[in-house]
């Protein structure tokens, strides 16, 4: 990878809560190349949405650095920040609540052009809005309609046109197709793929739907309790998941193969609270493959937090099944 478009290094995000601190994102490092799609999977509360907000500069990390095209988001001046917010856009899950119901479609799509001084006069703006609506498969003559006059899928197309208007390099898709019916979801997934090919966009594709993520992603990162537990090429992660959590997650997806039910790995209990996460590996209380303690020594899983290190060249995993706990101890990463 030459210059990463987006680079997160040891990013942590904590929120104050009534009883303690929510550890939403815990020591995440990742890179995203121009034109690449990184899928971010995990269940409710794993921190994937917070990570998306951090990548956009909408939230400041508690510690760690976030570089966008080599530039530190935190150190950027006001003008630089404005330019960075143009280059990184977002598409939200709910096309019903993420569009202002009192604005016409054309105004929604064109608002960013005005804000970033890209409008080029009234006619220029009108032409560009028509071009954008056409690009996402909407009828340009519908620019004077209100959001409620569009279907759910069409509204999501409006959200995409709004994001594309300012010619971004990165789009964070936060559950962008999750609220859509499958027949419409497929239309939007194909549209996102076409736009990426034609415009060279990079996507940070956040979703709880593992099948959709598999479909769109070059690489995939699985998150659990704020940390990335496994990351690698989509083909490798799906064909040969290494982390016990990723394995359970993938096995739980109901597929059209009725036999898949028999291969389900059932997890016990619920995800622990991010206010009071377990010691050691965050997954150890539910892990079916936890290393037992023995005469040689106690289990590392409840004492030490495994680091995300390469089991294979481009497929790192945070699990003591693949790394020597002594390495973690030696590096002083012991957590109590």
């Amino acid at each position: 990878m030459a210059t990463a478009l987006l680079a997160l290094h040891e990013v942590e995000k904590r929120f104050p809560a009534a009883r303690g601190t929510v550890r939403a994102v815990e020591g995440v490092s990742l890179d995203l190349a121009p034109g690449e799609t990184l899928g971010l999977v995990g269940e409710s509360g794993c921190g994937k949405t917070t990570l998306g907000r951090l990548a956009l500069g909408l939230l400041r990390p508690t510690t760690g650095t976030i570089l966008f095209d080599g530039q530190d988001l935190q150190a950027a001046s006001g003008r630089e920040r404005r330019e960075l917010t143009r280059r990184a856009q977002i598409i939200f899950q709910d096309p019903f609540s993420s569009l202002d119901p009192r604005m016409r479609a054309g105004a929604i799509v064109g608002e960013g052009l005005t804000i970033h001084g890209m409008a080029g006069g009234r006619q220029g703006r009108r032409d560009r809005v028509a071009e954008l609506m056409d690009l996402v498969g909407l009828e340009p003559s519908h620019a004077d309609r209100f959001p409620h006059e569009f279907s759910g899928g069409q509204r999501q197309r409006l959200g995409i046109a709004r994001a594309l208007a300012v010619e971004p390099d990165l789009i964070v898709c936060d559950e962008a197709v999750s609220a859509l019916d499958v027949s419409v979801q497929a239309q939007i997934v194909n549209l996102l793929a076409d736009l990426q090919r034609d415009l060279g966009l990079a996507y940070l594709f956040i979703s709880h739907d593992l099948s959709v993520v598999r479909y769109v992603s070059d690489r995939v990162a699985a998150m659990y309790l704020g940390a990335i537990v496994e990351m690698g090429p989509a083909d490798a992660v799906y064909a040969d998941p290494l982390h016990p959590y990723t394995r359970a997650l993938l096995s739980a997806v109901p597929t059209l193969d009725p036999e898949s039910r028999k291969r389900r790995i059932m997890l016990e209990g619920d995800v622990p609270s991010p206010v009071d996460p377990p010691t050691g590996c965050p997954f150890h209380p539910r892990c079916p493959e936890r290393i037992p303690g023995g005469p040689e020594g106690p289990s590392p899983c409840d004492r030490l937090k495994p680091r995300l290190v390469s089991g294979r060249a481009d497929h790192p995993v945070a699990c003591f099944l693949y790394q020597d706990p002594a390495m973690t101890e030696a590096n002083g990463e012991r957590e109590s």
């Binding site: 899928g153 069409q154 497929a186 997934v189 099948s211 479909y215």
Partner: peptide, 27 residues
């Protein structure tokens, strides 16, 4: 048939040149 063809599966991806086959239009 259209519904079944619109669903992405765990075993394939757009990177292999595959495309989902959505049902045209809306409900």
């Amino acid at each position: 048939r259209g519904l079944l063809e619109s669903i992405p599966t765990l075993g394939e991806g757009v990177r292999g040149g595959l495309r989902l086959r959505p049902i045209a239009g809306t409900v």
